[in-house]
């Protein structure tokens, strides 16, 4: 009983929070990412979804401290992680956390593994970097980890080079490397995008099981709404550097409020049911130079009106569902138009 109640208290506190991240290309007048705030809870998966150029990957890189301060000007933003608080602009100093408490998986496993080292050594290095293990112990743990991510004959695979593995296997190695130190937060940037659909299904299953087991918080960055529906507990929808809608996964998929979210969902072709012409979002994502003032989606929004020249404020509804649109909640309009 006691254990159960203490874990419920724990899970009500975010393991990782970002407040008010703003950044721009050094010297540019427009923010690349604006007012980015998220909370990640232990055992939960927060999916950041959006199209290319919406700022989802660059936000993740900023949180990991992997951006060059001479190129990207991080103007504000605070990270709260495991009881520590530090500005995002100093995240690059958190080297002791990266690869240990904070881990990241990238999209392209071939380019993120070092081709000149055996995969097992690369995993062992992640251990010895942070913990005083002997190389034998590290090797033993690396092999255990390889087995845990479902690699057959892990002891033999330890001595193989990345080019000897298939795409799915390489991604499993990446996952092993990220999780070997039991991080409390995992950031995964499009981890299944480069994979075939049957392999993608295996990797999704693997991430889901490992995460459940470790009660780890996860930030998953993806453009694939199907993956989001399968993995997410919470969803953040980004458009052109802004969070347009966020909330629990059921709210986003069953009660989308922002026109962009509705547009995205309705432009997905379906695998079952009636085949009909796809709805689209007209136009293309504005470039950073041509960003509309006010609501950034206004240049493509079918609901656009004069008020959209003003910047919308995020409005919150029940269950932490919040939307940045002048027309939210849409139910008002719906009732009138039916």
């Amino acid at each position: 009983m006691l254990a159960a109640s203490s874990s419920s208290i724990n899970s009500s506190l975010p393991v990782f929070s970002v407040a008010d991240l703003n950044m721009r290309i050094a010297g540019s007048p427009t923010d690349l990412v604006e007012n980015f705030s998220i909370d990640v809870f232990p055992g939960h998966t927060l999916c950041i979804v959006g199209e290319s150029g919406c700022g989802k990957s660059i936000s993740a890189l900023a949180l990991m401290g992997l951006l060059s301060p001479t190129e990207i000007d991080i103007r504000s933003g605070t990270i709260r992680f495991e009881g520590q608080e530090y500005p995002v602009s100093e995240a690059q100093n958190a080297r002791h956390l990266r690869g240990d408490r904070l881990a990241m998986i990238f999209q392209e496993p071939m380019t993120s593994l070092n081709p000149a080292y055996k995969v097992g050594e690369q995993i062992a290095e992640a251990i010895t970097c942070h913990h005083p293990f002997s190389s034998d112990e590290a090797k033993k743990r690396a092999i255990e980890m390889l087995a845990k991510v479902g690699i057959p004959a892990p002891a033999a695979r330890f001595n193989e080079y990345p080019h000897q593995l298939s795409g799915g296997m390489r991604q499993r190695v990446m996952i092993a490397m990220a999780l070997v130190n039991n991080p409390s937060l995992l950031i995964a940037d499009e981890p299944t995008t480069a994979l075939d659909v049957t392999i993608q299904a295996q990797i999704i299953e693997l991430i889901r099981n490992l995460q459940k087991e470790a009660n780890m918080g996860t930030i998953m960055i993806t453009h694939d709404l199907g993956v989001v529906a399968k993995l997410a507990t919470d969803v953040v929808v980004m458009y052109a550097g802004q969070i347009v809608e966020k909330g629990p996964v059921e709210a986003i998929f069953n009660d989308p409020q922002h026109p962009y979210t509705i547009g995205l969902l309705s432009s997905m072709p379906k695998l079952t049911g009636q085949r009909e012409r796809l709805a689209t979002i007209p136009g293309t994502v504005p470039t950073i130079q041509s960003m509309p003032s006010g609501c950034r989606f206004s240049s493509r929004c079918p609901f656009r009106a004069a008020i959209c020249k003003e910047k919308p404020v995020a409005r919150s509804f029940k269950n932490n569902h919040s939307v940045s649109c002048h027309f939210a909640p849409l139910d008002v309009i719906l009732e009138l138009s039916v």
Binding site: Q200, Q202, I204, D224, G226, V227, A229, L265, M268, K270
Partner: peptide, 18 residues
């Protein structure tokens, strides 16, 4: 193949034929 495609629908678990 069909069972592996993740669909953008929440709460509907397909039996995955791995």
């Amino acid at each position: 193949l069909l069972s592996a495609v993740p669909e953008p629908v929440v709460g509907q678990e397909k039996t995955l034929i791995s």
